[in-house]
Structure formats: structure tokens, C-alpha cells
């Protein structure tokens, strides 16, 4: 009897979901649409492809894209002296437009000093603590988001180019394992939505491939810019799993694995996302 009621409920939910999808699902840009062509590389599709035309337009214009408010702040920080060494980023690296070009597209990468995998945020803080004698910026602080966005902007349009072999391979494997492991009360893995069901509808949305080439990204939902690890945390919460702390080795490894899934996609930071 209970089983029967449950089946009925599931059927009702299914019908509701299907009806709602049919009525409300927004069209996703076709792969042959020239406006999204550069965001598709082989089978890989940037999150840009899944956006409405209005949201794509918001990202495309550097005034209408709210992420640039943080980029501007990052530029100021780049030129601001901080720490006991009395230096700014610019004191050693000069103009970010040339010195940082292409750099962020290779992160996460192995830190030659420690032999460990680090992401771009950790690299920025390493520079602050080890070279500038300054305090690290807190994860998800306005400062770290701003400087990360500014540094990563210098790779905009360049292909994601992470190393997955050699010393990075064990991290890549760990990231892959995290990606494919079911977790949380919904008992779901990243791969189920973003590989297996990518392109299919979930209520009014189309499931994307979960590419991260646009982070830090301005999310309409957040109404602010956020890091890729904030996105991971909110995905974990959605499947009712315990989110990991910012900077966890698991999340850094996950960044590497997902970046490798989007190898060759153009860096889009600061992207605009749903």
C-alpha cells in the first residue's frame, strides 16, 4: 500500500516535472549558432552555450558584465603595496596584461616548491605570504575574488591548458574519483548530472557540462562574483552532501579534473552564469 502511494506520488511528480519542462524550458543555443561557436570545442561546451541570449549579451559587454566591477578592484590591488617587503604585485610582475597572459589557463598546477597541486587563488596567496610578507587574503573575500578575476582575465580567450600527467597525474586521478563518487542524501555524483544527463532537462533548466572555464564568475543567483570552489560547495549542498572547506585538497584536485574536461575551451573570466 505504501509502495503504491509512493509510486503514485512519483508519477505525479514526474507528470508535474514533465509538464513544467514542456511549458517553461528555455531553448538552448544550437551548436551551429555562430554566436556560441567559439565556446564549443569538440564535444566540450562552456556554460555560456546554455545561457539565454540576454545573459550572453550581459557577459559579452565589459560594461554590462558586473564581473568587471571586481576586475577593476583587482587591478587596483595589483598596484597596491602591501606587506613587510614593501612591494605590490606590479613591483615584480609589471603590467599584468603581459606578465599574467595565459598563466591562469594552466592552473591548478604543481607548485615546484612544495610539489603539491595548487590553484590560482592559492598561488596568489603564496605570493603574498612568501614574497610580499603580507597576510593571505581570506577565501571568497572581495580582495581574493577581485585579484583572481583580474589575473584570470589576462587569459581570456586563451584555451584551458592544464597538465594532467607527471606529478599532476595522482591529483587528476583523485579529482576524477571525487567527480565520479556518489555522495550526499541524494546519493549523486558530479558525473551523473554533468556527463550522463548533460543536455537533458531538469525542470526549467538544461543540465550543463559543468565546465569551469569562466570562474570566478558572476552568478545571477548570487548577485555577486564567486569562486569555482563556492560553486562546488553549492553543488554539494544541493545534493545534500557536506560541503568541504575552501581550499580543501579534494576541491583543488576536482578543479584540475574538471579543467581537464574542458581542455581547450576559452577562458571566459569573468563569465556570467545562472
Amino acid at each position: 500500500m505504501i509502495m503504491r502511494q509512493r509510486t503514485g506520488l512519483i508519477a505525479l511528480a514526474a507528470v508535474t516535472a514533465i509538464v513544467l519542462s514542456w511549458v517553461f524550458v528555455r531553448p538552448v543555443a544550437s551548436a551551429t549558432d555562430p554566436s556560441v561557436a567559439k565556446y564549443i570545442v569538440g564535444d566540450e561546451k562552456s556554460g555560456y552555450v546554455y545561457l539565454d541570449a540576454q545573459t550572453r549579451a550581459m557577459e559579452d559587454d565589459d560594461i554590462s558584465n558586473p564581473g568587471f566591477l571586481w576586475v577593476d578592484k583587482g587591478k587596483t590591488l595589483w598596484n597596491t603595496v602591501d606587506g613587510s617587503a614593501g612591494k605590490s604585485c606590479a613591483a615584480c610582475h609589471g603590467a599584468a596584461e603581459s606578465s599574467m597572459k595565459g598563466l591562469a589557463a594552466t592552473y591548478p598546477k604543481i607548485d615546484p616548491h612544495s610539489g603539491k597541486l595548487i590553484d590560482i587563488e592559492q598561488r596568489i596567496n603564496q605570493e603574498r605570504t612568501q614574497r610580499m610578507g603580507a597576510a593571505p587574503f581570506k577565501w571568497e573575500s572581495q580582495e581574493l575574488l577581485a585579484l583572481t578575476a583580474y589575473v584570470k582575465l589576462q587569459s581570456r580567450g586563451l584555451p584551458v591548458n592544464v597538465a594532467t600527467g607527471g606529478p599532476a597525474h595522482q591529483y587528476w586521478l583523485a579529482g576524477k574519483q571525487y567527480y565520479e563518487t556518489r555522495r550526499g542524501q541524494l546519493n549523486m555524483s558530479c558525473a551523473q548530472c554533468h556527463v550522463e544527463y548533460a543536455g537533458q532537462h531538469l525542470r526549467a533548466d538544461t543540465l550543463s557540462q559543468g565546465q569551469i572555464n569562466g570562474f570566478p564568475a558572476y552568478r545571477l543567483k548570487w548577485q555577486t562574483i564567486g569562486s569555482v570552489q563556492r560553486r562546488f560547495r553549492s553543488c554539494n549542498v544541493k545534493i545534500r552532501a557536506q560541503p568541504l572547506p575552501y581550499g580543501s585538497p579534494e576541491y583543488v584536485a576536482l578543479e584540475l579534473y574538471i579543467a581537464s574536461r574542458g581542455q581547450g575551451l576559452p577562458i571566459e573570466t569573468p563569465a556570467v552564469r545562472k
Binding site: L12, A14, K176, M188, Q192, V195, Y197
Partner: peptide
């Protein structure tokens, strides 16, 4: 992409429907 993810145990349609329907 050179590293294709391995084939996973499929999430049943029921899982998806329950998740969506609940919401």
C-alpha cells in the same frame, strides 16, 4: 577530450524524478 569518464552506474530515472518532483 582524451580522458573519457568511465561508464557509471546509471542514476535511475526515479532518482532524478524524485529530486525534481520533490523540489
Amino acid at each position: 577530450m582524451s580522458n573519457d569518464p568511465r561508464v557509471l552506474p546509471a542514476m535511475t530515472r526515479r532518482d532524478l524524478v524524485l529530486a525534481a518532483g520533490g523540489g
